[in-house]
């Protein structure tokens, strides 16, 4: 009898806990399981809120001028609109295009070359980079400790008013993990709640034929490193994944980016060389440069007529998720 009670209470607790996780982090139905290990950093509203404050707080930079939100703007899917290369402290210019931050719970590694192996340690890179925030995490922690607001918030969330690197990084992860974009027109069509126009449907068919081996649904990335035929930019000399693995086979490979919200995440490519989707499609149709790493699907380029390109663009625009782009929970709300 007693055993039954215990089991009953445990079951109720589990339901409650799963409900909590469900509300704070939702895995859209039909999606693969998230990669992020939530057991080590269980979603908590107080921690998400600290993450939101930190994300928009320039205290992370040496001279308090640059926050994460400086280069990752919500309305452009957390990419840096109009900047080919990221723009950091003292007007310094980095070497790569700030990527969109979307569906990060499903990513195994981070950065265009996969240099970062876990979402928790991602923020260390821009904080320390002299062209971005030019600061050290130890000094960030010391600065936060001296503020009026943060020690109390960390105490409420972690039971410790001595702020630790671990809490700062886990809070940033908690906030970024909430960036789930799964309610575009494409998603509603997939659920049977909407329909594609004839043009979008033709674009989707072309997409399935020519693009989806790398931009795999539902995340619209296979999370791998591929060469897509871009000639090297002589001024940047960026060899991509090879810098990390030192394998010549990885020369010029970069992480396949998601296409979700691509309407707003321009400019495109790791160095932001293309301003419009038409420029991107023109590259795949007639700009491919041959190299050993080029996947077979791109070796002859993608044969696209003018109307094919228009249909593909029409489909790509269905990946815009306005609920995501304008979700108040992700926004800067003053300090």
């Amino acid at each position: 009898m007693r055993k039954r009670w215990v089991i009953g209470i445990l079951a109720a607790l589990m339901v409650l806990l799963s409900f909590k996780k469900e509300r704070l982090f939702t895995e859209p139905s039909g999606w693969p399981e998230a990669v992020y290990d939530f057991k080590r950093n269980p979603p908590d509203p107080a921690k998400i809120e600290i993450g939101r404050l930190l994300f928009y707080d320039p205290v992370l930079s040496r001279d308090s001028t640059i926050s994460c939100g400086s280069c990752h703007l919500q309305y452009t899917a957390f990419a840096h609109v109009d900047h080919r290369l990221s723009h950091g402290i003292s007007d310094r210019i980095g070497t790569r295009n700030a990527p969109a931050l979307v569906n990060l719970a499903w990513a195994r590694d981070f950065m265009w070359d996969g240099a970062v192996n876990h979402l928790d340690v991602q923020a260390l890179a821009p904080i320390a980079n002299p062209d971005e925030m030019d600061e050290s995490i130890a000094h960030v922690v010391a600065k936060l400790q001296k503020t009026e607001r943060y020690p109390a918030l960390f105490y409420a969330a972690y039971g410790d008013s001595a702020i630790k690197t671990e809490y700062v990084l886990k809070s940033l992860s908690q906030f970024m993990l909430t960036f789930v974009s799964a309610n575009s027109r494409y998603d509603r069509v997939k659920k049977g709640l909407d329909t594609f126009t004839a043009k979008e449907a033709k674009g989707y068919a072309l997409f399935r034929t020519h693009c989806s081996s790398c931009h795999t649904e539902p995340l619209f990335t296979n999370q791998r490193y591929e060469y897509n035929g871009l000639p090297i930019d002589d001024s940047l000399q960026d060899w991509g994944r090879m810098r990390i693995t030192r394998r010549s086979a990885d020369s010029l490979r970069f992480k396949v980016p998601t296409l979700r919200n691509i309407e707003f995440s321009y400019p495109y490519m790791h160095d932001g060389r293309f301003k419009s989707l038409h420029q991107v499609l023109n590259h795949y149709a007639s700009g491919i440069q041959q190299a050993p790493a080029l996947p077979p699907s791109l070796q002859k380029g993608i044969p696209l007529s003018g109307s094919d390109k228009a249909e593909l663009v029409a489909f790509l625009l269905t990946l815009t998720d306005r609920e995501f782009l304008y979700n108040n929970a992700f926004s800067f709300r003053g300090r």
Binding site: L119, D120, V121, K164
Partner: peptide
């Protein structure tokens, strides 16, 4: 990911 104590990345 982010660890504490002697493994603090700071």
């Amino acid at each position: 990911g982010a660890l504490g104590g002697d493994l603090d990345p700071g």
